[in-house]
């Protein structure tokens, strides 16, 4: 076993100081060190996108990122978006349009789309489809996910 390394990471607005093994994955750090279980792990080789978090605002696969690389950086996970009582506009749209079935890939898709909508608040259907192309979902055939993102963009628009 290797020596522990001290890191400071801002996760969902809170600063955490921990000592971790250099080989600890960021996904495991978020899940098991910080107890934030919303970030799921689907493939552990960076393909499925389930573990996507925002790293300094940009979507990143936490399963192929070492926790030590997050030292001094800002992480956002699905827990930052909303609560069961008060879901975000995007989450509400996913409920309204049935954009989630088993819900396992959903946190990764929500994080990817949160960043996507910030960059492109008025996306076309085709742009949304390409935007989620890096995230695998086995339940929905993606159609209702795309509908949900479309609705969320509309609702964000009418709110602003």
């Amino acid at each position: 076993m290797s020596d522990l390394i001290d890191i400071k990471v801002n996760v969902n607005g809170q600063l955490y100081e921990r000592s971790v093994e250099p080989r600890m994955l960021l996904s495991d750090f978020i899940r098991f060190e910080l107890g934030l279980g919303g970030t799921h792990v689907g493939c552990e080789h960076g393909v499925c996108g389930t573990c996507t978090i925002l790293f300094d605002g940009k979507p990143q696969r936490s399963c192929i990122t070492f926790a030590v690389l997050a030292d001094g950086h800002t992480i956002e996970t699905v827990e930052s978006l909303g609560t069961p009582e008060k879901m975000s506009t995007l989450q509400q749209a996913f409920q309204e349009k049935h954009g989630a079935q088993c819900g396992f890939c959903t946190p990764g898709i929500l994080m990817t789309m949160t960043a996507f909508l910030k960059e492109n608040p008025h996306p076309s259907e085709e742009e949304i489809r390409e935007g989620i192309d890096g995230n695998l979902c086995r339940c929905t055939g993606y159609q209702n996910i795309i509908e949900a993102v479309k609705l969320a963009a509309e609702n964000m628009d009418s709110k602003s």
């Binding site: 799921h40 699905v78 827990e79 978006l81 609560t83 996913f94 309204e96 049935h98 989630a100 946190p107």
Partner: peptide
């Protein structure tokens, strides 16, 4: 009818095996 389970699933509060 929209789903009863969604608020838990969509906010990352649903517990799966890894949890």
């Amino acid at each position: 009818v929209i789903r009863n389970e969604d608020p838990r699933i969509l906010t990352g509060r649903g517990k799966y095996m890894a949890d």
